Simulated scan of single mutants.
Amino acid sequence: METRDVISLISKIREKVNRFIVQEMVKQGLEGIGTSHGDIIYALLQKPRLTMAEISARINKDKSTVTALVDKLVRLGMVTKEREKEDSRFVYVALTGKGRELETVFEAISADMLEQFYLNVTEQEKEALLGILIKINNNF
């Protein structure tokens, strides 16, 4: 493998991580939920009420994609949508009780994923990797 292959390798790692996460969610009975749905739930676990625009910015997806993702989570009973009373252009999304119950599941999946991700990687290598990826990300 050559240094020019790094983007392809990052893409393959991303696919494997997403597959791992989806498989773990299925094991927990969360079939039909993709990693993008998980991103929304995670964002709402951090801040309990967000606008669609805030979710879009946090998960780096366009608003139409976020709308479709949120609508599915509404159908699954994991989130609610509510229009702002003073300005109906704003739609707020919040977790339901069922959605909040996913916090421990998400934490466990995240811990398992990180354990697998960093298997055989030293703390020094983790720090170096993070620093390099931050530099590359800032290039764009």
Rank of each mutant, 00 (worst) to 15 (best):
M78E: 07
Q124I: 11
M113L: 13
N120Q: 11
V17Q: 13
M25Q: 13
M25C: 11
L69N: 11
M78H: 02
E107S: 12
G34L: 08
L73N: 04
I41E: 00
E31V: 15
Y92E: 02
I109C: 04
I134G: 03
T96V: 14
R58F: 06
R89K: 07
I132C: 10
A128Q: 08
T80F: 10
H37Y: 04
L130N: 11
T35W: 11
R75I: 10
A57M: 13
L95H: 02
L69F: 09
G77M: 13
T122Y: 05
E31N: 09
I33A: 01
R89Q: 02
A53F: 09
I21F: 07
G32N: 09
A111R: 12
T51A: 04
D87K: 00
Q28D: 12
R89Y: 00
L102G: 04
K27I: 09
K47N: 14
K135P: 02
E103K: 08
K47A: 03
A108G: 08
R100F: 10
Y92I: 00
T122W: 07
E103V: 07
F90N: 00
V26C: 04
K63Q: 11
G77D: 10
E86H: 01
V105Y: 03
E107N: 12
I109R: 07
E123N: 14
V105C: 13
D87H: 00
M25R: 08
S88C: 01
N60F: 13
Y92W: 12
Q23V: 03
K135C: 07
T67I: 14
T67S: 14
F106T: 06
K72H: 12
H37Q: 06
G38A: 06
P48F: 02
Q124L: 09
Q23H: 08
N60A: 12
G38H: 00
H37R: 03
V66T: 02
K81S: 10
L45K: 01
Q23M: 08
A128I: 02
L114N: 08
D87W: 00
E115Y: 12
K85Q: 04
R83G: 00
E31T: 15
T51S: 15
L95V: 09
E31Q: 12
T80R: 10
S110H: 13
L119S: 12
A128Y: 06
E24Y: 07
E84L: 02
Y118V: 10
L114H: 11
A43T: 10
L69R: 09
L129S: 15
K81F: 07
A94F: 00
E84W: 01
Q23E: 15
K27T: 05
F117V: 15
E103Q: 11
V70I: 09
L130F: 12
S110I: 02
M25T: 08
L45H: 03
A53N: 12
Y118K: 10
Y42F: 08
A43L: 05
K126F: 11
L130C: 05
F106W: 09
L130A: 07
A43Q: 06
Y42E: 12
R49Q: 14
M52F: 05
F106Q: 05
T65H: 14
N18R: 06
R100L: 15
Q116N: 11
G29H: 11
K98I: 11
G77Y: 06
G32S: 08
L95N: 04
S110F: 13
K16H: 05
V66K: 07
G32W: 05
K72V: 04
A43E: 12
V22W: 01
M52D: 03
N120F: 13
L129A: 15
E125N: 09
G32K: 07
P48C: 00
